[in-house]
Structure formats: C-alpha cells, structure tokens
C-alpha cells in the first residue's frame, strides 16, 4: 500500500535524522530502534514479511541489545544512577513514543485491510527465501557462517579486559 509506505518512509527519515543529531548515546539508540522498526514496516508493505521479521528480531533485537550492553558497561557508578533518573523524564521518551505510535497505527491499518492488499498479493514468503538461500546461495551461507565465526573470535580476543601489568607493559613498550 502506497500510503502506508509513505508514512513509514517519513518516520524512517525523521528518526534516522534524529539519530545523528542527538547528544546522548541512549537517546540516539531509541531513535535508531524506531528507524529499524519503520524499515521493517516498509519491508512488510513491499511484500517481504520474512525480511521484516528478521529486521525486528535481529537488528532491533539482538544488535541493539549489544549496543545497550556496551553503553551500560561504559558508565558505571554514581553518575550512571543520576543519568538513569534523567532518562525517566518525559522529554526523553516522548519523541520515540510518538513515532512508534504512528508506526503501530500504520501497521494496524495494514492488517485490518487484510493480507491480500499487501503488495497486490505479490508476497515473497519465507518458503521461497529459504529455498533460494539453501539452493543457489548455499556457498554464500557457508561464507556467512565463516564470517560469523571470525567475528566471534575477533570480538572475544579484542573485548577482553587487559590486566594492569599487561597494560603497563604495553605502555612502556610504546
């Protein structure tokens, strides 16, 4: 549906713009999640429900949780508690909530109209995607698994906290 597409495209543009002009990381993360959700609604209107579900589960779910974990690890202590108190103020969450409500209304209207309206019935469902993924693109799946393993090993190696003496030794070697 064109109108649903335009509405979610507008939400995507506004929220993405808000991401890069925010001062605090957590505010930007909220807007980034809204941006990803609106792109998921766009996928849904385009007749790609599997991509939409993956966008919500993996992008807005898993990857954003990684970001939140790192942000929480970086500021510990009394300052963090004060900051957390300021996050409860309405000024902080009203913008993302309004955008999320627009997306929700968009999605509900789409669902009320019935599935046959979406993309004129040209829906490429999970079955077709899976058959393509494990048919002609099987080599790509293997390469992606190797990439993920390399990413896992790299993150484990880089992310460990160096001990004090190790750090001091590296400083003196400089």
């Amino acid at each position: 549906m064109r109108d649903a597409f335009y509405i979610s495209a507008a939400v995507a543009f506004v929220s993405t713009l808000m991401v890069i002009i925010q001062k605090k990381v957590v505010h930007a993360l909220l807007y980034l999640i809204i941006s990803l959700l609106s792109v998921a609604v766009i996928f849904f209107t385009l007749g790609a429900p599997f991509a939409a579900a993956l966008e919500v589960i993996i992008y807005a779910g898993a990857i954003m949780v990684l970001f939140v974990f790192v942000v929480m690890m970086l500021n510990l202590g009394a300052e963090a508690a004060r900051q957390e108190k300021s996050w409860m103020s309405p000024r902080m969450w009203i913008g993302p909530s309004v955008l999320a409500a627009i997306l929700l209304a968009d999605m509900l209207v789409l669902l009320a109209r019935g599935p046959a309206f979406i993309s004129g019935g040209n829906v490429v469902g999970p079955k077709h995607v899976g058959m393509a993924l494990f048919g002609p693109y099987l080599a790509g799946v293997e390469l992606a698994s190797m990439l993920l393993l390399a990413g896992l090993a790299g993150a484990y190696h880089l992310g460990r906290r160096l001990k004090k003496e190790e750090l001091a030794e590296r400083e003196t070697r400089r």
């Binding site: 898993a62 990857i63 990684l66 990439l147 993920l148 993150a155 880089l158 992310g159």
Partner: peptide, 19 residues
C-alpha cells in the same frame, strides 16, 4: 540476510574495539 550477518559480525568486533 547476508548483509545482516555481515552487520552482526561487524558490530561485535566494532563494539569490542569501543571497549
């Protein structure tokens, strides 16, 4: 899906670099 797998690997290494 491939782009998403790549983004997941990239962001895990990138956040380790942030730490």
């Amino acid at each position: 899906i491939f782009i998403m797998a790549m983004a997941a690997a990239e962001v895990s290494v990138g956040l380790a670099l942030v730490l």
